[in-house]
Every structure is written in C-alpha cells, then in structure tokens.
Design a protein around this nucleic acid. Structure first.
Length: 225
DNA sequence: ATGACGATTTACT
DNA sequence: GTAAATCGTCATA
C-alpha cells in the first residue's frame, strides 16, 4: 500500500517526530461496534487541513452505538434520513453530525454496509498540531487556562480542535486524504480499559444502562470533570 | 409551517 | 450544582 499521505509539515510544537503507522483499511473497521470501539483505543486519528497541516491524537475514549435496536442511536428503529445516511455506508465511513446548535460529533461507521452501527470517538490525547488545536479551542473560550488534557477531552472538543464538521460527514476513512486512522500500536488488552455506561443517553430507556463506553484506564485526556 | 429537542460545552451562582 | 448558548433535524399538522 502507498505509505505516503500528504507530507508531514515540520514539527511546530517541539514534540518528538511521530513515526507513521499503517493506515487502517476497510477490513480494520469491519467489526461489530463494541469491538471496533475497543480496537480504536490507542490508535491514532489523523486530520490534514487544506493547508497541509497535520493534526493528530491517540484515541482514548469511545462509545458503541448498536443501530436499529439501540434507542440511544440516531438510527434507532431503522430511521434513515439525510443526516444519518452515512451510518448505512460501508465500515470506515465517517458520520459527523451537528448538535446543540454549536457542536459536532465524529463517529466511525462499523459493522457491514447497510447496517447502521457506529462508534462515537469521545476523546483524544493530542500528539501533533497542539498549537493549532489550542488556537481553535481557545477561540471558543473567553481567555486562557486551557490545559493540554482539555484540548480533545470530549466529542465536541475534539471536533473543534481537529476542524471536523459536517462537511466531512460521509467521507471514507480508508481513502480520504483529509482524515484517517493509523496504527499506533497493538490493540490494547482489556486489562488496560475501563468499561462504563454511555454519556448523555439517560433518556434511552433500557439502553441507557448498557455498558458501551470504553476508555483507556488512568488516562487524563478522557472526558468528564 | 411549527415546535420540541438534542450522543455538549462553558460560565456562573 | 444549575443554566445558558444556539440551530439543524425530525415528527407532527
């Protein structure tokens, strides 16, 4: 496979250069959503801007949405509207939606084409482009006091930091030059993960209590205060 | 056409 | 802890 993606810009944060990892291909995404949610942890999400600037972070928190039977999922009951259409695409499709009138959330479609299941990426440990992320995040805040652990510690925050919005919904993470997942290390063993109920789905009836959220144990970059 | 409501974040009491 | 911000989406009519 072509190892080359848009050229890495010079490091601007004084951080150590990051060795490129193999880009995830279709088959890497083809798992049920709980499995994909766990496998994404510890891997790298990479975003390349129009300018060629590269932003990246290690995924540290995810949630699985089970589609048709899952009352908390946008595709619950087989709902198929323009917004959720990407969820019906092949695994590796990006599903980005706008919510609360101001925030975006980024999902990775799992399963098989036609099966509307996905994984919500909730937090990253930023590794590249920290200055650009700080600028984008601070712009939405009043003043200073933004810690590195708060750059991408939530679904809306990471979308803001990585400049991910609805313009990117439906793109193919296995081939698009703007956004992809690459291997940063081996799949994390269950012993390094913490499994809890999902955030913000209290109104989902029986599904509200389903343990479908995972995060890297002890990682300071996860969401919540 | 209209109204209710978010897979959230931030600021404030 | 509570509440505001802010608007696209979806169900209802």
């Amino acid at each position: 496979m072509a190892r080359r993606q848009p050229a890495n810009p010079p490091e601007t944060d004084g951080a150590a250069p990051v060795a490129p990892g193999r880009r995830w291909v279709r088959a890497d995404f083809a798992h049920d959503s709980p499995t994909l949610a766990r496998r994404l942890l510890g891997q790298r999400l990479v975003r390349v801007l129009e300018t060629g600037e590269r932003l990246a972070g290690l995924i540290v928190e995810t949630e699985a949405y089970l589609g048709v039977p899952d009352r908390a999922a946008h595709s619950f009951g087989g709902r198929r509207t323009a917004r959720v259409e990407p969820m019906y695409g092949p695994p590796g499709t990006a599903y980005v939606y706008f919510t609360y009138g101001m925030h975006h959330c980024f999902n990775v479609v799992a399963g098989r084409a036609g099966e509307p299941v996905a994984v919500l990426v909730r937090a990253l440990a930023a590794t590249e482009g920290l200055d650009a992320m700080r600028t984008r995040r601070s712009a939405a805040r009043k003043g200073v006091g933004l810690r590195d652990t708060d750059l991408c510690s939530g679904p809306g925050k990471l979308c803001q930091a990585l400049a991910i919005d609805r313009a990117l919904t439906g793109l193919d993470l296995a081939s698009d030059p703007r956004l992809w997942v690459e291997r940063a290390g081996p799949t994390l063993p269950a012993s390094r993960l913490v499994n809890t109920v999902r955030v913000g789905v209290e109104g989902a009836g029986d599904w509200a209590g389903a343990p479908l959220r995972w995060h890297v144990a002890g990682d300071p970059h996860v969401s919540r205060r």
